[in-house]
Simulated scan of single mutants.
Amino acid sequence: MMENHILIIEDDVKIARVIQLELEYEGYTVSVGHTGRKGLEILEKEPIDLVILDVMIPELNGMEVLRRIRQDNDQIIVIMLTARNSVYDKVNGLDLGANDYMTKPFEIEELLARIRTNLRFKPRVSSDQTEEETIQIHSIKINTSTREVFKSESLVDLTPREYDLLLYLVTHRNRALEREQILTEVWGFDYYGDTNVVDVYIRYLRKKLMDSRENPIIQTVRSVGYMVKD
């Protein structure tokens, strides 16, 4: 029996109920909030592992709820529910720190698979690497206990996925990592997506780390993928 606690923030009562029943059948503990404010109230009172968050909800919309979640916690997994073809919502949600997104309408089996993948996900680093509380490379310093990243002593604001990607690249430095390999290790082996998501997140990281062509921190390995070199 799974013990993960999932919060559904969805104003459509029927959709929320269907998701709730499916999750409870799978063994999850489930809470439901039909407005943004109610969802945040539940988050304050109960230990939540994962949030299924609809973008279009009353009182506080999903983006604002996500922003407030990330102000206090970067460990809770957030899966956004967006309207079909709403590229802005997807990009904005990822920028604000969402771990994943689903477009409506969706198959419940895919949602369950995304939930399993995200709950199972942990950065796959070896034991000797995880014992290293502070990792320094070039002007980048990573504190693995607080999940903070500094560039020349200035704190860099990374989303949970950006942090996980950077940590994976750095702990496997001096190795050319294929996109498929990165996708498998950072997003999970049954992630439903293509390798383009790796390129998108590399661009995010490079911009935040002020990575330039003249002084690259993350190097592109032609026809292969990416590498961080000492």
Results as ranks from 00 to 15, higher is better:
Glu3Ile: 14
Glu3Gly: 13
His5Asn: 12
Ile8Pro: 00
Asp12Arg: 03
Arg17Thr: 14
Val18Gln: 07
Val18His: 06
Tyr25Ser: 02
Tyr25Cys: 03
Tyr28Ser: 06
Ser31His: 07
Thr35Arg: 12
Gly39Met: 06
Glu41Thr: 10
Leu43Ser: 02
Glu46Met: 08
Glu59Pro: 00
Gly62Cys: 06
Gly62Asn: 01
Val65Met: 03
Val65Ala: 03
Leu66Pro: 02
Arg67Lys: 14
Val78Tyr: 04
Ala83Glu: 12
Ser86Lys: 03
Lys90Met: 10
Gly93Asp: 12
Leu94Asp: 00
Leu96Thr: 05
Asp100His: 02
Leu112Tyr: 03
Ala113Ile: 05
Ala113Ser: 04
Ala113Cys: 07
Arg114His: 12
Ile115Asp: 01
Leu119Cys: 08
Arg124Ile: 10
Arg124Tyr: 04
Ser126Arg: 08
Ser127Ala: 13
Asp128Ile: 03
Gln129Ile: 01
Glu133Tyr: 07
Gln136Arg: 13
Ile137Asp: 11
Asn143Met: 09
Thr144Val: 11
Thr146Glu: 15
Glu148Ala: 08
Lys151Thr: 02
Lys151Pro: 00
Ser152Ile: 14
Glu153Ser: 13
Glu153Ala: 07
Leu155Glu: 15
Leu158Ile: 04
Leu158Ser: 05
Asp164Ile: 06
Leu169Ser: 02
Val170Glu: 01
His172Tyr: 11
Ala176Gln: 07
Ala176Arg: 07
Arg179Asp: 13
Arg179Gly: 06
Gln181Arg: 10
Gln181His: 13
Thr184Asp: 15
Gly188Met: 08
Phe189Glu: 15
Phe189Cys: 12
Phe189Pro: 13
Tyr191Gln: 05
Tyr192Glu: 15
Tyr192Asn: 12
Gly193Pro: 08
Thr195Met: 12
Thr195Ser: 14
Val197Cys: 10
Val200Leu: 13
Tyr201His: 09
Lys207Glu: 01
Lys208Ala: 08
Arg213Thr: 07
Asn215Gln: 14
Asn215Phe: 15
Pro216Phe: 10
Gln219Asp: 09
Gly225Pro: 02
Tyr226Cys: 04
Val228Gly: 02
Lys229Asn: 12
Lys229Pro: 02
